[in-house]
Amino acid sequence: MRIVPDDATVKAARILAVDDEAANLSLVEKAFAREGFDGVVTFLDPQAALSDFAQNPPDLVLLDLMMPGIDGYELLDSFRRLTPADAYLPIMVLTADTNVRARLRALALGARDVLLKPYDVGELLMRSWVLLETRQAFQRRP
């Protein structure tokens, strides 16, 4: 039983996930793998995520905000700076912070979507698919 529509180009997308909790990264990997996505890379270290982002720009970023060592907002800002102005590179923030301001701040800094932890796995997959589809549409424009 698959959750998201079967679209080979979407599922070939490169997805970059950053979280300080290994279990959460594992969950993301398993969830996407189950749906046939094979381009998921995960980072416990935000710095490593940033350099990977710079070298191989992904199609979608799944980002945790509260991490030790580096502020998720700073990372979010750095990702946006590395993105060309005319590109659509969606970032979805996954956070356990229930404060509405945290979500608003993330969206203001360029996040395209926010999901509150613990999230519904199906919802994560569907929202990710919507973002990736939009990115494809963006890339196909003349």
């Binding site: 039983m1 279990a23 959460n24 594992s26 969950l27 189950r34 356990a96 613990p118 519904d120 796995v121």
Partner: peptide, 27 residues
């Protein structure tokens, strides 16, 4: 409170998430 919320919800993410994955493959 904010931290509390974060700390309590974070492990639940994995618990509920994996549980949901198991449920998806309940067959």
């Amino acid at each position: 409170l904010s931290r509390m919320s974060h700390e309590l919800r974070t492990p639940l993410t994995a618990i509920l998430g994996f549980n949901q994955l198991l449920d998806m493959d309940r067959d």
